[in-house]
Nucleic acid binder design. Structure first.
Lengths: 243, 243
DNA sequence: TAAATAGTGTCTATGAGACATTATGTA
DNA sequence: TACATAATGTCTCATAGACACTATTTA
C-alpha cells in the first residue's frame, strides 16, 4: 500500500482531495474477553455509567480513534482492539490472544446514533485474570460465568455478540491451539482436559484426550516442562506450549 | 433492541442527545463475488475510473448509507452488502449466497482518507453469471480466473481480501452446503464433484465423492430431480438441493 | 463394437468413542 | 492400607483415501 509508487497525476489528485461530507457512522470496537476462573468459563463485563442502558452490564469497548486529516488517519483497527483490551484489563496485547470475531451493523443497534461495532474476542490465561480488577478504569467490572448470563440484562446487542464468540471458540477449540491461551504457561494433561470440558460443557474422556494430546506432543506442538504438578494424589507431568 | 422498554430518564437523555463531533471513519462494503465459468473459479472485478488506483482492477463495493439523524440511522450493514451486490450484478440478494468475511481496518489502506471496509463474499450460480455483464453500471466489469490474479495489479488491499475469501470458501466447502450455490438448481454428482475439484484445485476421487454425496442424500439434504442429464456418453441422474 | 463416463465395491489406515486396567503418588 | 487420580491399553465403529471393477449410454 504505502510502498506502491503513485503516478504523478494521482499524487496531484490526492493533494487536492477533499472528503465529501456525507454522514459517517461511528465505529466501535467491542471485546468479548474470556478467562477461566473457579472452573468456569467467564466473560468480562463492565457496568454502564451512562445512558443508554445505564446500570446494565455491557462488553468493554470504545470508539476507533480516527485522525482529522489524511496525513493522520488514526489507529489501525487491530490496534484499537489491543488498546481497549489494555485499557480495560491492564494486560498488554502481546500476552493475550486476540482475534476478530464479526462486525455488527444493524442500523438501530444503538439508540443514540449509527454505530457499527467491530468485535473481537480475547483469551486471558487464568494466572493473569486476577490482575484485571486493578487495571480497570472507574467503571465497575466483573467476570461473569457464561451460563449465568441468561438472567442478566445486557446492553445493546451484546448478548448476540457473546453468543457468537462462544460458538466461535467452541468451534475452534479442537482444531486450533486456542486452549493453550486458557491455561497457565505450564500445565498438565488433566488441566488442559478440564479446559476443554469447561469450554465445551461436555465431559472429556481421559484416555481419548490423552491420545490426542500425545499426537500434539509427537508433532512438536507441545514439550515437556521441568518438574511435576503436586496434587493430593499422584503427581502429573508438566508440559508447555512451544513458542 | 427496539422492543426494550426504555426508562423515562433514558428517553429524556436520548431526546437531548447530541453526538459529539469526533472524527469518524468512512465505512465501505466490498464484495468478493465468485462464480464458476469455463471450468474455472472466477471473481468479479471492476475497473476503477477515478483516482486513486485509476485504471486498476478492484473489488466492487461502496459506502454504507448512513442517515443524518438518530431517527434515520441508515441501512443495515447486511442490507448495504445486498444493495451493492444488486447494483453491481443486477442479481437480487435472495438468489445469491452472501456471507460476511472480515473487516479490514489498517489506518492507511486508502490514501484519500480513513476507510474501514467490511467485506463479504458472494456465490453466484453459473447459470446466473451471464446476466451480470448487463447489470453492471458504467464501470467496466469482468470475471477473472482466480489463478490469473497474480499478474494483475489490484487496488488497495483487495488482493489480501480475495486471498482471505479463497481461504474461507475452501475451508467451508466440505463442511457446509456452500457448493450448492456454485452449481445450477439441478445438478449431477459429477457436476458437483467438478465444483469441488475447481474450488480446491485438487482432483476428487469419483467413488469417494459419490459416497459422501449419498450420505447427504440419506440425510435428506439433497433429493432426486426429474430427468437425466444428456451427455456424450452415459447420462447421469439429476439432483437438487432441498429448500 | 469401441470409447467414455456413470456408478459400485473393496481393502486399508486413521481417528473417535467407550471403557477396562495398571501405576504411582498422598493421607 | 485405602484412596485418588495419572497413565495405559483395547475393542468397536465411522470415515477417508486409493483403486479395481461393472454398467450403460453415444458415436
Amino acid at each position: 500500500m504505502s510502498t506502491r509508487k503513485k503516478p504523478d497525476d494521482e499524487v496531484a489528485y490526492l493533494e487536492n482531495y477533499r472528503a465529501k461530507d456525507y454522514p459517517r457512522p461511528s465505529v466501535a470496537v467491542d471485546l468479548v474477553i474470556f478467562t477461566i476462573a473457579d472452573a468456569q468459563l467467564r466473560v468480562l463485563l463492565v457496568k454502564r455509567k451512562e445512558h443508554p442502558f445505564k446500570g446494565s452490564w455491557a462488553l468493554p469497548g470504545g470508539f476507533v480513534r480516527v485522525g482529522e486529516t489524511a496525513a493522520d488517519p488514526g489507529e489501525d483497527l487491530e490496534a484499537a482492539a489491543a488498546r481497549e483490551l489494555e485499557e480495560e484489563t491492564g494486560l498488554s496485547g502481546s500476552r493475550v490472544y486476540l482475534e476478530q470475531l464479526y462486525t455488527f451493523g444493524k442500523a438501530n443497534r444503538d439508540p443514540r446514533m449509527r454505530v457499527i461495532s467491530v468485535t473481537y474476542f480475547a483469551l486471558v490465561r487464568p494466572d493473569l485474570a486476577p490482575l484485571v480488577q486493578a487495571g480497570g478504569d472507574a467503571a465497575q467490572a466483573a467476570w461473569f460465568h457464561v451460563d449465568g448470563l441468561k438472567k442478566l440484562e445486557l446492553a445493546f446487542d451484546h448478548r448476540d455478540i457473546v453468543q457468537m464468540a462462544l460458538t466461535r471458540i467452541r468451534g475452534k477449540l479442537d482444531d486450533s491451539p486456542l486452549a493453550f491461551d486458557l491455561v497457565p504457561m505450564t500445565f498438565t494433561i488433566p488441566e488442559l482436559r478440564h479446559v476443554h470440558a469447561i469450554v465445551t460443557g461436555l465431559p472429556q474422556d481421559p484416555g481419548n484426550f490423552r491420545r490426542r494430546f500425545n499426537r500434539m506432543l509427537d508433532e512438536g506442538l507441545i514439550e515437556k516442562a521441568p518438574g511435576k504438578r503436586i496434587t493430593t494424589s499422584k503427581p502429573a507431568t508438566v508440559y508447555r506450549f512451544r513458542r
